[in-house]
């Protein structure tokens, strides 16, 4: 097993633990926005699609890349905007 893979596995495990801990006692009011916010974060897949662009060189590859880019960009852009719209409606209690 390569050192790089071991490092990646370590990072993966620790990130899982951080994910378990970062969500604590969330009021039910925020369940939907929080889910939507987490949904936007996995839009980071757009970074992966961009890296994929460096390794495709066939027509099927280009088509695959374009579809993946469409999907990922939709996830990340729409995800953040719809979360923001939801949260904009929670005015602070004053």
């Amino acid at each position: 097993m390569s050192a790089l893979l071991l490092a990646d596995l370590t990072v993966f495990t620790l990130a899982l633990l951080v994910g378990f801990e970062v969500i604590s006692k969330v009021p039910a009011t925020l369940h939907t926005p929080l889910m939507s916010g987490a949904n936007a974060i996995h839009g980071v897949v757009i970074v992966g699609v961009m890296l994929l662009a460096a390794s495709v060189s066939s027509w099927t590859g280009y088509v695959l890349l374009a579809v993946a880019a469409f999907f990922a960009a939709m996830n990340v852009a729409g995800g953040y905007l719809v979360t923001d719209r939801m949260l904009a409606m929670f005015r602070s209690r004053s």
Partner: peptide, 15 residues
């Protein structure tokens, strides 16, 4: 991708 993916995977499971 590994960090953000694992983060959402775990946080999503708790949620």
């Amino acid at each position: 991708l590994i960090i953000a993916g694992a983060l959402v995977g775990a946080a999503g499971a708790i949620l």
